[in-house]
Design a protein around this nucleic acid. Sequence first.
DNA 1: ATCCTACAATGGACAGAGTCCAAGTCAAGA
DNA 2: TCTTGACTTGGACTCTGTCCATTGTAGGAT
Lengths: 137, 137
Amino acid sequence: MSDLLERLRGRGWRMTSQRRVVAEVLDGEHVHLTADEVHVRAAAKLPEISRATVYNTLGELVSLGEVLEVATDGRAKRYDPNAHRPHQHLVCSGCGAIRDVRPQGNPLSDLPAEERYGFTVEAVEVTYRGVCPSCSA
Amino acid sequence: MSDLLERLRGRGWRMTSQRRVVAEVLDGEHVHLTADEVHVRAAAKLPEISRATVYNTLGELVSLGEVLEVATDGRAKRYDPNAHRPHQHLVCSGCGAIRDVRPQGNPLSDLPAEERYGFTVEAVEVTYRGVCPSCSA
DNA sequence: ATCCTACAATGGACAGAGTCCAAGTCAAGA
DNA sequence: TCTTGACTTGGACTCTGTCCATTGTAGGAT
């Protein structure tokens, strides 16, 4: 994660304690926190941090391509720091838990030209839905 | 669409003018309206219809499997009456336009067992993103 | 080490999407 | 036609996110 901080500094990011704790909270594998959850965890380390700052920082991280925004349901967006390894998501219909997964093949090539309606297709997101072990138990 | 009304009646749905206009609004191919758009169009036919009723009715149609809920971005959910033909979505990053598309292959089978983390995988949604002809012109 | 200033943080108001609920209405079976 | 439970209403409320004027501060300049 210090990699991230270094990269950001290299891009001219002004380093503040708020940005640091947000970046720290977003560390790890299979992390998919909502903005509010990020705020709660960040506030545990830096009580004065405001909601607006968390939203601003998350938005910047997304613009910089360091974090992915994931909208798996109609509720709050989730933020996924695993942005440098292409992956898709597996979501539990019961509890909403999310795992990063790597399917085989390339869905982009599965869309034939006659199904593209003249669009320039640039990306594809795949969301698998199912029931996790805890919820099916 | 009268098929739909028949099916619903057969399932014990009480038929009201509100439910009828909502079902009528949700008729056709490549229809992906937000709840609010459904409300506006329904109100054109039945001015007294309330927002709550539109939400209730859409929710019921989704539960009954007659309409799909599509969350293509962080904005309002869209409702897709094309529920009985499996398909995926192609979304324009410019204007948000949505087309129904049918990719080849079956993405479900592209997720190997060791990438399923013990989940019972039941469904998969694929969203292609790109730029539509009007927006790239 | 101190000063400056542009950039960042704050928090409260605001907006959009959706849910909830108590009261009134009505479809459809008896 | 009557009855009743399901349906509708509209307004209050929640949740998620944005905006903005004000205050604070990181980090280069001196």
